[in-house]
Design a protein around this nucleic acid. Structure first.
Lengths: 337, 337
DNA sequence: GTGAAAGCGCTAACAT
DNA sequence: ATGTTAGCGCTTTCAC
């Protein structure tokens, strides 16, 4: 392995001059600078980033903690964060936690020991332990930013969607199509952003002179089975006269599709569906799903950017960013009389 | 930050004894070992992995190079590799290259400089530059393993599917259903595994006394648009009497679905479709897609395992592993007379 | 079973 | 504009 000492020897300078050429070239005369650059190239020099980290106490690594990269919601976020980071000279260490607190703990410890410069936490579980987790990060003075969700009591910075407004827009879209009895299949309401969405739904009803009916709202886990089960629950009672369903994530909508197919309810003729997320599969469904597309790539991109800016200014990140979701009109919603 | 010197001082031993407790505890007497462990815990000691790497020339990092994590084929591979790695005390540095050679080069250089212990390369582009790329890795004596594809002339180890056999099985499945004129929408044939698959298709025809008709094979890029376009090409000529299509990846199958829907060709009544991959969306299509499921998670898992085994034995990886794809029968294929 | 010395490759701080 | 010295936190080597 070629070191700066090897280059220094060959170029008849001190190793410090070589180091300067690599880090602050303006401090070195053009002549020696070029000689050193040439020698370095000839010798196939590669800077040892580990040695550099050891001195500077900076690794240019960002830890990215998420539940499971296989969940189609996350790859775009990861790509966004990765692109943003590499543009700024950072790299991503990815860890999957399956929302398991023990795994989160272990990952965090690993990231500490590896000396990451900051952490992005994507999709915190929403339980009591989150707070302890974030507090532990803060105690260790590790810059941290959240994606997709936030913790109300703490002022950890975040990048999320405009949850209240996007739910308002989705609901209003259905109302404008003539729907009056709109069922909601909600993601867990212990998580703040889901509460925010429900508030948006309520507000849209109110602003359009429709009364909120609690019995039209059901809540479950964010998976297909839960969606199908809750659709059944909601549609079982014909007195509810539900003509449209608003699901809080695309997985839940997939479940509604499944239930409708099994029970010969045509979409959108028998039931309109609008959702939130816009993951890859949603446009491939039959009919293609109308959904509020979250800007997943941008979430990742901006989170990494905000975090790295903070790192470079040697302070904790402050900024909270809210990205506007976009209504993607496909074919799962229909005008009724 | 607490160092082994701090612990040594407090416990009245030398820093070396502390180091031994952490690395080869059996060399230290039980009494001192326990005292040191206790002190370390009290002081909140965390080993500095950077300093350790600096001395040992080992980072316990694996570079994972792939085209784009957003492509639904990759997340499972990444998860598999990540699980396998973390089980063995390694972590993954993920880089996206978009099949762009310049980006691959830059990533590789970064990984070198970061001192990764090995590299997993997932989905090499299949061009001439691959060879140069792999040779550069070899020159630098960096252990390397390929996933999903391989380079015929080089004996770099790999983990891939049984491409010949899986294509044989897919084709035979259609033949058994009564199909005699089976169109093929192929992925780029400059890539060896796709050639292998075509050979499997041919062999299945031959073994079932059907003649191979070159005009039934068309080739394109692995995306939906290409699939739709090639379906059009294949189905335009009624004289071909195509009753079934075998696509080499699920994206291509999605394109065929798109074309069929636009042209009112019912699946599977008007056309049977079988594919390869089994990405997440495939089960959600209407009708659900019958496809040869590649063991993506296992590919990643085993690749990381083989690589790390080799790293620990201080040699280059040797093993080539072939995983059996599994026929997932859904509803896109139909028996005909 | 334990300790002392050296050094991994680099940069910060100070000197010239 | 360039050089000297020291040291980041750890492990390797050798000595006792």
């Amino acid at each position: 392995m070629v070191t700066i000492y090897d280059i220094a020897k060959r170029a008849n300078v001190s190793h410090m001059t070589v180091s300067r050429v690599l880090n602050s070239p303006h401090l070195v005369s053009e002549k020696t600078r070029e000689k050193i650059l040439k020698t370095a190239k000839e010798m196939g020099y590669k800077p040892n980033l580990i040695a550099r980290s050891m001195r500077t106490k900076k690794t240019n690594y960002i830890g990215l903690i998420l539940p499971d990269i296989i969940n189609p919601f996350f790859p775009e976020i990861v790509r966004g964060a990765s692109d943003s980071a590499s543009k700024l000279g950072y790299n991503i260490i990815l860890v999957n936690t399956d929302n398991d607190y023990a795994k989160e703990q272990a990952s965090l410890e690993m990231l500490f020991n590896r000396g990451v410069d900051g952490v992005i936490h994507c999709g915190i579980a929403g339980g009591k332990k989150d707070k302890a987790f974030i507090e532990e990060i803060n105690e260790n003075k590790l810059p941290c930013i959240l994606i997709d969700r936030y913790i109300p009591d703490l002022d950890t910075p975040y990048v999320i969607s405009n949850n209240f407004e996007l739910a308002y827009e989705a609901t209003e879209y259905l109302i404008k199509l003539g729907h009056k009895n709109i069922g909601v299949i909600s993601s867990p309401l212990k998580i703040k952003i889901h509460k925010d969405r429900l508030m948006g739904y309520k507000q849209a009803l109110e602003d359009n002179n429709l009364v909120f009916d609690e019995s039209l709202v059901v809540e479950g886990e964010e998976n297909i089975e839960s969606g199908a089960e809750l659709a059944k629950q909601l549609l079982a009672d014909p007195k509810k006269k539900i003509s449209a369903i608003f699901t809080m994530c695309d997985f839940l909508a997939f479940g509604v599709y499944k239930y409708c197919k099994a029970n010969k309810i045509p979409i959108p003729d028998g039931l309109s569906i609008i959702s939130i997320d816009d993951i890859y599969a949603s446009s491939l469904l039959e009919p293609p799903l109308t959904t509020m597309a979250q800007k997943k790539y941008e979430m990742g991109f901006n989170a990494a950017k905000i975090l790295i800016d903070a790192i470079n200014n040697k302070k904790m990140p402050q900024k909270k960013m809210i990205l506007k979701a976009k209504l993607v009109k496909r074919e799962s919603c229909k005008k009724i009389d």
